[in-house]
């Protein structure tokens, strides 16, 4: 043995240096794998929420919103979620390259793979509605998220331009509701001339989008009504009402 190996062996003995356990490395690898998997699931949830925003948005109503189509679409775009998905996928990809063989794969292939998996997973989650409780939880308990969604929904409150959106708070008769809009203002909705865009059971708590005409500061005459959050395809809508969403007093 030469000088360096002796020195190293002496150091190992003197400082009681021992190899780290095999379990430690197995645990670390498992942790890394779980982190990557977890992040892909999270981005899948993000994708499901984005799909929800796109497919359940009332595009008919958007056409009438203030500022024109482009501004309305930009307002409605779930950019917060899109940024979140990009960030999560970037972190997942970075972690993936730290796995044993992850570095051997080209970054664009890793990115394409994670986007594909997130997309498929997002679609599955959307159709099984697993994303909905998460969004409800965020809306009710994470105030910045609630404010963002409020701002987004607020784009549909423009009675001067003939659109209004909010929650039914009272059903006075078949021809008259009380509604609180997403900017927290109460309205009497005149339904005499109204057509229902989709079939649904009007009930207290149901969120609706309305096209019509502002009659005065308190009364809005509806000509077209659509349910605010449509039921996703392939899912039976039980009970009709999505329930309170935090906009109620």
């Amino acid at each position: 043995m030469n000088k360096l190996s002796q020195k190293i062996l002496e150091k190992i003995e003197k400082e009681k240096v021992t190899p780290k356990s095999k379990w430690y490395f197995l645990f670390m690898h498992a942790l890394l794998g779980m982190a990557v998997g977890g992040l892909i699931i999270i981005s899948g949830i993000g994708v499901a929420i984005v799909i929800r925003h796109f497919t359940l948005t009332d595009w008919q109503l958007i056409k009438h919103s203030k500022g024109g189509n482009l501004k309305s679409i930009l307002t409605v775009l779930p950019y917060l979620w899109l940024m979140f998905i990009v960030l999560v996928i970037l972190i997942a990809d970075k972690l993936f390259t730290q796995t044993k063989k992850g570095h051997r794969i080209r970054p664009w292939k890793i990115a394409a793979g994670s986007i594909l998996i997130s997309g498929v997973l997002g679609g599955v989650l959307f159709f099984t509605r697993i994303d909905k409780p998460i969004v409800d939880l965020l809306r009710d308990h994470v105030s910045p998220y609630g404010s963002w969604e409020m701002r987004r929904n607020g784009a549909f409150v423009s009675p001067e331009d003939g659109i209004l959106a909010g929650q039914i708070i009272t059903i006075n008769s078949e021809e008259e509701w009380m509604l609180i809009d997403f900017k927290q203002k109460e309205w009497l909705i005149d339904l005499t001339e109204a057509e229902f865009q989709t079939e649904f059971e009007p009930d207290i708590g149901v969120l609706v989008g309305i096209h019509g005409m502002k009659m005065d500061d308190y009364v809005f005459e509806a000509d077209l009504i659509g349910i605010w959050e449509k039921t996703p395809p392939f899912v039976t809508h039980e009970g009709g009402a999505p329930g309170p969403r935090g906009y109620r007093d």
Partner: peptide
């Protein structure tokens, strides 16, 4: 020296 010590502590990896 530091490299070899690290190699030793990471032998299980």
């Amino acid at each position: 020296q530091e490299s070899f010590i690290k190699i030793y502590t990471h032998l299980n990896a």
